[in-house]
Structures are given as C-alpha cells and as structure tokens.
Amino acid sequence: MNPNYSVATQSSSSTLATNKLIRNTYTLLSMTLLFSAGTAAVGVMMNLSQGMALGATIAAIVMLWFVLPRTANSAMGIPVIFGITGLLGLGLGPVLNYYLAVNPSIVMTALGGTGAIFLGLSAYALTTRKDFSFMAGFLMVGLIVVIGASLLNIFLSIPALSLAVSAAVIMIMSGFILFQTSSMVNGGETNYIMATASLFLSIINMFQALLHILGAFNNND
C-alpha cells in the first residue's frame, strides 16, 4: 500500500507556514519594540507635553484602525506598523517622565515584569499549542468594560477604581497575548503584520498598567 504523501506534504507545508509566521512576527515585534523604545526616549528627552502625547496616541490608533488593515498585505504595511509603534512610544514620554521623577526603579521593574510576563505567556502558548480562541468574546467584553470604566473615572477620579482598571488591563492583555499566540499556532492568524500589531498593543498596555500599579504601591510605602 502506498503511503499518503499528500497528507504529509500538506501537514509539513502548513507547519512550515506557521513557523515562518511565528518567526516573522517575533522578528518584526522585536524591531518595533526597539523603535518604540527609541521614540519613547525622544519623548522623555524632549519633555513632551501631555497634549502632544495624546495627539501622538490618537494618530497611532487612527492609523491602526484605518491605514494598517488596508496595507497589511503589502510592503507598505512595514512602514505603517513602524509609524504606529513609533507614535505609541512617543506618547509614553510624559508618563515615563513622571515615574522616572518618582522612582526610576519603577520603570525598570515594570519593563522587566512586562517582558517576563510576555515571554512566559508566549512560551506557554507556543509549547502547549492549546487553542485559546474560546476567550475571544470574554476578552472583547473585558476590553469594553475597562475602556468604559476608564471613561467614567475621568469624571469620578476614584484612585481605587483606577487601580482596579489597571489590574483588569493586565489580566485582559495577558489573555490577548495567549489568544493571539495560539491564533498564530493554530492557523487563526496568517498575517504577521496584524499579529505584530496585536501583540505590541498588548505589551504596551500591560506596561502602562504595571507602571500605574507599581507607582501606586510605591507611593503607599
């Protein structure tokens, strides 16, 4: 009986495609993170105002929603993703300046902590190859809830609510990292630029939330 080579070929070609996607995604993610760190440093050194930082963040989100989906399947997607991550990094300037003035170790601890959480979750999703697609609805609802709570807290200014939102952001972004990584492994995501954008947003939101939590508990000492 002749073995079914076509099945083996399909399996190995899809495995190759998945491995290529994962490699391209993490390569682009590391480059965009470095670029974003550079623009964040520029924002810190320029002592960027809160207004400029907000403008940069809004411009990044507009590009993410309206420009990136149209360019993700072409070579233009690369400069667009660098533009988005650069603007988001620039927008971190005032926040980093504040926490560097309070206690520089907060920024370093938040950076290291975010990296460790991301590496741990990614390694878990990649090695176990579990399917986390069941979390999509829960994560999107959670995202709506934290955005709504943040919006409410602009008017209420309750510190405890702000901390609770930050804690929820970390949990939700952790979930998004698991979800996005398992999507790449299991074939749900095939575009490395969109995967990079999703992972980058998870990392930067987690970093900001961790900065806030560490800063709050540092002040309470």
Partner: peptide, 19 residues
C-alpha cells in the same frame, strides 16, 4: 486560564515587593 492569571497575579505581587 484562571490558573495562568493567578500565576500572573502572584508575579505582580512579587514585583510590588521589589519596588
């Protein structure tokens, strides 16, 4: 997922102690 989140939470508590 819950067990993973508990691990993340414990790690963050550890980070808080470090600062």
């Amino acid at each position: 997922y819950l067990m993973i989140m508990v691990a993340v939470g414990l790690f963050i508590m550890f980070l808080i102690q470090m600062v």
